[in-house]
């Protein structure tokens, strides 16, 4: 177990932004009235012996400042669980995770998260209100907040929609609000959990360019979870390919193509096919 809350002396500050050292995450599986329930803790008064579901089995990875890492794998391979551990919502069963040399102990504004669901945007707040939520909770003054929000709105190209309520926005715009809300504080690390999974292909491509632009304009470390191979190769400079559950690293593919990338270039297609083969390996049926 990691020493919670205190600096781990083995890692000097600043060497890596994120260090994941041999973590394992498993859940207890109970069946309640025919429904499967995952539980962190073992129940005290249960006659039945619970099953064990290993979401992540032995995972080690370092992420440096300014890197764009994509976690790629089939659904249920534990990549989202890993992201939730990095966000501080869950703790690993064994092994430890550090952020800037400190063990991760709960959520932190320095590790912002863009959720998969559009419903993470608050429908009762305007676009402005949603984006200003983070600064507000951190006690930023009204004037500074307004400035920061205006800047971010410009960056995600939502100008003119400051006063709009989420129910009037399209799915793509909602995800841009979600991204803007996460980056407005300039967090050190941006965690994105399949943010464009529910969008149509055209909007998705557009937003991918957006994310690259944001990543280039405000030097940021991004960890991006996806099951879309092309998306991972298009965005990241390091694609971590997972095995099927229990999640382990199959291979870390470095992508050294310059942005903007050409989806039809030979190198791109070669890398994409390589990743496809890596994922296919475990699923010969395809």
């Amino acid at each position: 177990m990691a020493m919670r809350g205190e600096t781990d002396k083995r890692f000097g500050p600043g060497s890596h932004v994120v260090e994941i050292k041999d973590i394992k995450k498993s859940f207890y599986v109970y069946v309640d009235e025919g429904q499967t329930v995952l539980s962190e803790k073992r129940r005290w008064f249960s006659r039945k012996k619970p099953g064990e579901l290993v979401a992540i089995k032995s995972f080690t990875l370092d992420v440096d400042h300014g890197e764009f890492v994509a976690l790629l794998g089939p659904s249920g391979c534990g990549k989202s669980t890993l992201l939730r551990i990095l966000a501080g919502f869950e703790t690993p069963t064994s092994g430890f995770v550090t952020f800037k040399g400190n063990a991760i102990n709960g959520p932190d504004p320095q590790r912002a998260m863009v959720f998969q669901s559009e419903r993470a945007v608050f429908p009762w707040l305007t676009v402005e209100g949603n984006i200003g939520l983070g600064p507000k909770l951190q006690g930023m003054g009204k004037k500074a907040r307004k400035e920061a929000v205006a800047k971010t709105i410009e960056l995600v190209e939502l100008k003119g929609f400051e006063r709009a309520y989420p129910k009037t926005l399209s799915g793509g715009m909602l995800q841009r609000v979600a991204v803007a809300r996460a980056i407005v504080n300039h967090p050190e690390l941006l965690l994105m959990d399949e943010p464009f999974g529910a969008l149509d292909a055209q909007t998705r491509n557009h937003l991918q360019d957006h994310v690259v632009k944001i990543w280039q304009s405000i030097e940021q470390t991004i960890i991006f979870v996806t099951h879309d191979i092309e998306e991972a190769v298009y965005l990241a400079n390091k694609v971590v390919v997972f095995t099927a559950r229990p999640g382990e690293i199959k291979e870390v593919v470095s992508i050294n193509l310059p942005h903007p990338r050409d989806r039809t270039s030979e190198e791109f297609i070669g890398l994409r096919n390589h990743c496809t083969r890596l994922i296919r390996d475990k699923h010969p049926e395809g």
Binding site: S117, L137, R181
Partner: peptide
């Protein structure tokens, strides 16, 4: 109240009472 709404406030450094003010009250309105 949805889990993801609560977690949103938590990632911004809010605590249980911020969640109450920013999420629970608007949701139950």
């Amino acid at each position: 109240v949805e889990q993801v709404q609560v977690e949103t406030v938590l990632t911004f450094g809010g605590d249980k009472y911020d969640v109450l003010l920013e999420v629970v009250l608007p949701v139950i309105y």
